[in-house]
Write a protein that binds this DNA or RNA. Structure first.
Length: 814
RNA sequence: GCCCGGAUGGCGAAAUCGGUAGACGCAAGGGACUUAAAAUCCCUCGGUAGUAAUACUGUGCCGGUUCAAUUCCGGCUCCGGGCACCA
């Protein structure tokens, strides 16, 4: 039989489409699975990363259907964002037109992969309806104090009068005009995610074993809870006279090293620095260096070498009263803690590096439990206290608790919990996003828009140039009436970060057509479909998107919309698709176009290759000739189907009466089925499942029993349907009327063997192999193994023998 | 810089709980079929030595634990992801 991929694939895609084969049932008494691949940004064309993401999700969805679940497997579009505006700047296209044309094109591309999506729930996040519900949440958040305004630092291009994303800053310069980018302080809106820091941290425990461990660790570190001491450094009289400030606060997790403080370090943005600058106590050279530090973006600053400025002022050590110099250090972050630290170079690597650079004193106050202290190095491990007054001799962990307690008793400071997590800045000074539904009224202040007026829609008549803020420049968008007093007011022109839309789209999918116009979602539908049973996406989303989505879920719960704590039950993080060892990208010119592959070989080949080439979590190296190999397997598999006969039921086979090759073939077939159940339960290593199917097909080819062939196809087609659905439906329809698409149980009898082959090793080196009856005693096995490897034992004495059942015998000689 | 991963033949990989390293596939070489080619089928295939049987060696590097280490521990090297306005 000739394998005609285009005809077969077209046929079944049409069939699935016309039969609405993948719409979930409204019957909420059925057991459900919600399978979701992260939705795409409509960039224009799909890439191999998408093919991988959606093929994995589709395989899980199709398997779940075979197991009898009511499956929700939706798709949508993360359609707000910068690329649409970039296209507008570059090609003069309207972001809306560009975006929706891309969606139409990409929808066609995705459907050519034979993905089993529910169509009814598809939406784009730039749809006004979606914006309407989102703005409703934002108003609730504002009313609850979860959305607030404060000043923040932004990349600013003076020439284009615009805020730049980190991505738009190229080597410190504006991507469009090349002008030097500066840090500008602006008023912005923030979500109070830090209110949820503790819960976001605590609930990671609920995800253990269900999310990849490294993602949980990354989130834990990102939230960065630390317990420590907050205390105040008083400036000495001369210093406070200089700047007009009497003291500053510091936070430390290492209060045990308090006697080792040899200087204090402030962030370049610290208020004391401002005061000294203003009072003219900083010379011009130092001013320039401070300016440079301040204008460096945070990531750039983190990579920069350590640098400081001696401020020429002194703080008083809270316990000893000793004068310590106060410096600016570029590694002290203004957003973390209080923007100032006590520096203990003897026991902190960064402080040590800084002190070495500027010849600042180093006082050791902890000594290792064993061995001598190296005075020329930094010792950051635990040890015993020394040079620390009455704390000397204590283990440092104990001293840490004691010192915090003593600070509290004396009223010098207090034990506090600090988080690294910052509030989520959501303001964007851009056009193609959801407008923040707030109004600035000259008499009433900031007032939320009336919910009845939602959505606050984007005007179509804008010209995107890359200069300034399009909504701010728009002639009428801003003009509005205050919902409270009815007077003239101005609309907020900032739009929301696109991470906001991707923080609740998975909830929106739960809403069936009947409720879509009237509700963001309903409690019944959320209750039935959430959480997402399997969420599949790139590892690059391990922190931001997943943390924001977790936060938004908890926040909507507290607003009374839903009753769940965590959105994603199981998470599968896929690796990137590479070509020639590098990430596929247009600039490198190493892309492979999925459309071209589908046209040449068919969707099933593309799907098979992408699942076979590597386990999902690993990076995947694209290889053209391996794609040919995948195609050959499908052709071979399709061709050999002529060995099976048509039937509606699994053939009944008397295993004992079969010859060895037929028995082996059955064993391989059921091994593959067993493996399928295992990998869908937790491992998702489709590559080994496909290898198992290949082995089974090879083994079937070694024998000629028609019943065994038929049984083999009945089982293998069921296993392969999630992977190569078009081919599987074509053959299953012809042979079995698709009766094999369901849960098939493993025939364990094929695994029963009368003999076992054991490897024999001498001191761990494999020397021989023996075959023994399955019920042979350990003593007899050792005797036989010893005899078999007598040549390697020679004159040596046998010290012991270890038998690993079903595997090997190790003879230890001395 | 900080946090998190990864490294196994010529290549993608497998080895699920510490137990025979390299399953499965690709590439390559040889052969069958064919007038020929394509397609298909069969065989070989980590390295070194050897006609071979076989021996030694081998999972990024250095060291450790163990009867036994790709797997566990300590120390490195290189590559990748994230670092809050790319999504």
């Amino acid at each position: 039989m000739h394998y005609d991929a285009p005809t077969i694939e077209k046929k079944w895609q049409t069939y699935w489409e016309s039969h609405n084969s993948f719409e979930p049932s409204d019957d909420k008494s059925q057991k459900k699975k919600y399978i979701l691949s992260m939705f795409p940004y409509p960039s224009g064309r799909i890439h191999m990363g998408h093919v991988r993401n959606y093929t994995i999700g589709d395989a899980l969805a199709r398997y779940a259907r075979q197991q009898g679940f009511n499956v929700l497997h939706p798709i949508g579009w993360d359609s707000f964002g910068m690329p649409a505006e970039n296209a507008a700047i570059k090609h003069g296209l309207h972001p809306k037109k560009w975006t929706y044309e891309n969606i139409d094109y990409m929808r066609k591309e995705l459907s050519s992969l034979g993905l089993s999506f529910s169509k009814e729930r598809e939406f784009a996040t730039s749809d006004p309806l979606y914006t309407k519900f989102e703005q409703g949440f934002i108003i609730d958040m504002y009313n609850k104090g979860l959305l607030y305004q404060k000043k923040g630092m932004l990349n600013w291009c003076e020439h284009d009068q615009t805020v730049l994303a980190n991505e738009q800053v190229e080597e410190g310069c504006c991507w469009r005009c090349g002008n030097k980018v500066v840090q500008k302080e602006m008023n912005q809106y923030y979500f109070r995610i830090t209110d949820y820091a503790q819960e976001l941290l605590d609930d990671l425990a609920k995800l253990e074993g269900k999310w990849p461990k490294q993602v949980l660790i990354m989130q834990e570190n990102w939230i960065g809870r630390s317990q420590g001491l907050s205390f105040v450094f008083k400036l000495d009289a001369a210093s406070s006279a200089k700047c007009g400030i009497e003291s500053f606060e510091v936070f430390t997790t290492r209060a045990d090293t308090i006697y080792g403080v040899s200087y204090a370090a402030l962030s370049p943005e610290h208020a004391i620095v401002d005061a000294l600058l203003e009072a003219g106590h900083i010379d011009t050279a130092a001013q320039a260096r401070i300016e440079a530090m301040r204008n460096m973006a945070s990531l750039e600053r983190a990579k920069a070498p350590k640098e400081g400025v001696n401020l020429g002022i002194f703080a008083l050590h809270p316990l000893t009263g000793e004068k310590v110099p106060v410096w600016i250090a570029n590694f002290v972050l203004n957003e973390y803690g209080s923007g100032a630290v006590m520096a203990v170079p003897a026991h902190d690597t960064r402080d040590f590096e800084f002190a070495s650079l500027y010849n600042l004193p180093i006082h050791h106050v902890i000594t290792p439990k064993e061995g001598a202290l190296d005075k020329g190095a930094c010792y950051s491990d635990d040890g015993i206290m020394c040079n620390s007054a009455h704390y000397d001799g204590m283990p440092n962990r104990e001293a840490l608790r004691k010192i915090i307690g003593d600070f509290e008793t004396k009223g010098l400071g207090k034990g506090v919990v600090n988080f690294r997590l910052k509030d989520w800045g959501v303001s964007r000074q851009r056009y193609w996003g959801a407008p923040i539904p707030l109004i600035k009224c000259p008499t009433c202040g900031v007032v939320p828009e009336d919910k009845a007026n939602l959505p606050v829609a984007l005007p179509d008549d804008v010209v995107i140039t890359g200069e300034g803020n399009p909504l701010d420049k728009h002639p009428t968008f801003k003009q509005c009436k205050c919902p409270k007093c009815g007077g003239d007011a101005l609309r907020e022109t900032d739009t929301l970060d696109t991470f906001v839309q991707s923080s609740w789209y998975f909830l929106r999918y739960a809403t069936a057509k009947a409720h879509q116009q009237t509700h963001a979602f309903t409690p019944e539908e959320i209750g039935y479909w959430m959480g997402v049973d399997h969420y599949i996406g790139g590892i690059e989303h391990a922190i931001l998107h997943l943390l924001y989505a977790r936060f938004f879920t908890k926040m909507l719960r507290d607003l009374g919309y839903i009753a769940i704590d965590e959105p994603f039950e199981h998470l599968l993080t896929q690796g990137m698709v590479l070509k020639d060892g590098a990430k596929m990208s247009k600039s490198k010119g190493n892309t492979v176009d999925p459309d071209a592959i589908i046209e040449k070989y068919g969707a099933d080949t593309a799907r098979l290759f992408i699942l076979f080439a590597a386990p999902p979590t690993q990076e995947l190296e694209w290889n053209d000739s391996a794609v040919e190999g995948a195609h050959r397997f499908i052709k071979r598999f399709y061709d050999r189907a002529s060995n099976a006969y048509a039937t509606q039921t699994l053939p009944v086979i008397d295993h004992a009466k079969l010859d060895k090759n037929s028995q082996n073939a059955r064993k391989k077939v059921y091994e593959a089925l067993k493996r399928a159940h295992e990998i869908y339960a937790e491992r998702y290593t489709f590559n080994t499942l496909i290898a198992g199917c290949m082995e089974a097909l090879n083994a079937l080819g070694e024998q000629s029993n028609a019943d065994v062939w038929t049984e083999g196809y009945f089982v293998l087609l069921s296993i392969l349907e999630p992977i190569i659905p078009h081919t599987a439906w074509e053959l299953s329809d012809r042979l079995f009327g698709c009766a094999n698409f369901g849960a098939i149980s493993v025939d364990e009898r094929v695994f029963v063997a009368s003999t076992v082959t054991l490897a024999v090793t001498v001191n761990g080196k494999r020397r021989a192999e023996i075959e023994v009856a399955a019920d042979t005693t350990q003593e007899a096995i050792i005797a036989q193994a010893t005899a078999e490897v007598a040549a390697w034992i020679g004159e040596a004495t046998i010290k012991k023998a270890i038998v690993v059942p079903q595997k090997l015998v190790n003879i230890v000689v001395g």
